[in-house]
C-alpha cells in the first residue's frame, strides 16, 4: 500500500463539471450559475466579438446566451459546452443578418454612406495582434467560426460541425481553406 503524501492529503477537490454545475443551478444553487458564468463569460464574449467585430453586440450575445441557461434551455445528456457555443453562434448569426439588413435599409432611406464597421470596432481587442484580427475579419463568417471554435476553444471537429450545422468533413475543409487564406493575408501584410 502506498502511504499518502502531504500533497495527496491536501489536494484540492476536483472542479465540478459544467453539467454538474448547471444541474445544481436548476436545483436552486445560484452560486453554481455564478461559477459557470465566470468559467465561460470571457470565452463566449470573445468568440462573439471576433465573429461580429462589435464589442457591445458581443456583450449582449453573452448575456442572451446565459439567459437561455436560466430559462432551462439545456437538457442533461448533451455537452453543455457545445450547447453554449451553439446558442452563442446562432445569436451571432441572427445579429449579423439583422445588422446587414439594417445597413441596407438605412442606406436606402437615407441615401447616404454607411460605414458597416467603425474604427473603434476594429480596436475591440486593442492594437495587439491587429494583423491577425484583420486577417480573421477577411474570412467568411462560417470559416471564421470554424477557426475560432477549433483553435481558440479547442472543440473537436464533430462538436464544431454540430454547432455550425455541417459535417466533420466540411469542418476540415473549411479549416483548410481558412488556414490558407489567413496565411496569404498575413504574408501580404509582412511583405
Amino acid at each position: 500500500m502506498i502511504a499518502p503524501t502531504l500533497s495527496m492529503i491536501h489536494a484540492p477537490p476536483p472542479e465540478p463539471s459544467d453539467e454538474a454545475l448547471v444541474c445544481a443551478f436548476h436545483q436552486g444553487d445560484e452560486r453554481a450559475f455564478e461559477r459557470l458564468y465566470d468559467r465561460y463569460n470571457a470565452r463566449i464574449t470573445s468568440y462573439a466579438a471576433r465573429l461580429l467585430q462589435r464589442r457591445e453586440a458581443a456583450e449582449d450575445v453573452c448575456t442572451e446566451t446565459f439567459v437561455r441557461i436560466v430559462q432551462r434551455r439545456w437538457r442533461p445528456g448533451g455537452s453543455f459546452r457545445s450547447f453554449l457555443f451553439t446558442v452563442a453562434h446562432r445569436l451571432c448569426l441572427d445579429r449579423l443578418r439583422a445588422h446587414r439588413r439594417h445597413t441596407r435599409l438605412l442606406g436606402f432611406f437615407d441615401r447616404r454612406g454607411y460605414t458597416e464597421v467603425t474604427a473603434e470596432d476594429h480596436l475591440v481587442f486593442g492594437q495587439r495582434d491587429a494583423q491577425l484580427q484583420r486577417a480573421l475579419a477577411t474570412l467568411p463568417e462560417i470559416h471564421r467560426a470554424a477557426v475560432l471554435l477549433t483553435y481558440t476553444e479547442g472543440l473537436t471537429s464533430p462538436e464544431v460541425g454540430r454547432i455550425l450545422g455541417c459535417t466533420d468533413q466540411q469542418v476540415r475543409s473549411k479549416l483548410s481553406y481558412a488556414r490558407r487564406k489567413l496565411r496569404e493575408e498575413l504574408e501580404a501584410v509582412d511583405g
Partner: peptide, 26 residues
C-alpha cells in the same frame, strides 16, 4: 503556429455580472 497565435489573442469579458444576468432573466 496559428493555434498558438489565436490562443494568445487577448480575451474580453462582458462587464455584466452573473447576478445581473440572473436579474435580467427574471
Amino acid at each position: 503556429a496559428l493555434r498558438r497565435r489565436l490562443q494568445e489573442l487577448p480575451t474580453i469579458s462582458s462587464p455584466r455580472s452573473a447576478d445581473e444576468v440572473l436579474r435580467e432573466a427574471r
